[in-house]
Design a binder for these strands. Sequence first.
DNA 1: ATATTTTTTTAGATTTGTCTAAAAATTAAT
DNA 2: ATTAATTTTTAGACAAATCTAAAAAAATAT
Lengths: 219, 219
Amino acid sequence: MNFSIAEENYIKNIYHLQQQSELVNTNSLAYELQTKPASVTDMLKKLQVKNLLDYEKYKGFRLSSKGNKVAINIVRRHRLWEFFLVTKLGFEWDKVHAIAEELEHVSNQELIQKLDRFLNHPQTDPHGDPIPDGNGKMPVIHQLSMADVVEKKKVIVSSVGNQSPAILELLNHYHINIGTEIKINQRFSFDGSIEIKVGKYAACIISELVAKNIFVYHD
Amino acid sequence: MNFSIAEENYIKNIYHLQQQSELVNTNSLAYELQTKPASVTDMLKKLQVKNLLDYEKYKGFRLSSKGNKVAINIVRRHRLWEFFLVTKLGFEWDKVHAIAEELEHVSNQELIQKLDRFLNHPQTDPHGDPIPDGNGKMPVIHQLSMADVVEKKKVIVSSVGNQSPAILELLNHYHINIGTEIKINQRFSFDGSIEIKVGKYAACIISELVAKNIFVYHD
DNA sequence: ATATTTTTTTAGATTTGTCTAAAAATTAAT
DNA sequence: ATTAATTTTTAGACAAATCTAAAAAAATAT
Ligand SMILES: [Mn+2]
Ligand SMILES: [Mn+2]
Ligand SMILES: [Mn+2]
Ligand SMILES: [Mn+2]
């Protein structure tokens, strides 16, 4: 079955919202898609008719198992293209989302299968998110963003999302490299900054933006 | 300026039809786009309003200079993606057109510029067609398909569009390789087949399909 | 020159996806 | 338990892109 770009964008965003809460509501999906609640309701009906959605008026909605499969396939395409854009074309990690948002809708099975092989079956996209395989299976990722690590944990830097000279300069200043051990001391909710301790250096604070771009191994 | 997928498909196909005849007519464009003449007329008006088209009712139409620039840009994207699909992803030359037909509409300047660099600024697509540069300049191509060579001409094989074992087996049988000198004896209009003479072997006939896939240097 | 055929355009309808404004249902507050 | 606020849905309109059927213009044939 083939879906329109609009349908695919709805499906994918429902999928993402479901990662946070079992049932999705009209307003949050409208916000996510930058559209109006009335438009969402219209589309929900169409998706329900196509058996992609479990939906009861006024009661919220969730993807059906069929809808879930479709969603994971779109996510797969999106993340593979993001990986391609960063590793092959040399894009910065923060510039690829908008482009992948378009590329994900080129839905040719063989294209994605060949792209996956060309990229050597990557496990995570440039933001550290897992790339589902052709059967929809998500790889278990041990790597995660430092912005998501709990306090008091010791971690080891596995990769850096942003390859720009600007962040590399900053990481150098913090004495952070691939393999560096970092202890998360405390997270400040005001701006999402985190106090960390790197090796034997004095504790210091990194911004939320920096934390998001440092990926670490977790035990 | 940004154009819809439908608009881009119209613009590109008008461009291609113009290569054969200065003025384009409604029916042939409708045929090319697999749509109805009435739909074409509708779109022509829209393109005229956007200054992409010189159009007078009942008198045929052609792209404006602005429309031409847009068209060449779409052609550039299409051919770069085709080149990518064949050389990087390992597609057969005859499978890439439909996919490039979709990819060409992902219109991000930086994406195309980086793709071009990644591919090492290719001059021709897998079908031997020239790839315009970022300024719309078409490279002068000395290579052309044997299906386009005039009779009595001697040529040298430069490349083969189709890399499949099936055609390679056949070319082997004809004693044709890269660098082989071929004389075009006669073209038969019934099926587009061509009688050729390869080296000192007896003259033989190749099908139009084979001829289209043999690219040659021309003096 | 008139009639016939072909090409092109118009008129009006349809599908998809969107919107605003108003109504209905649900949830929260008094 | 009413009232008020929020959320969701409906009703009706609109733009883009398409279609069919009919009218108009141009090209061709007699
Ligand atoms: Mn998208
Ligand atoms: Mn991502
Ligand atoms: Mn296209
Ligand atoms: Mn081509």
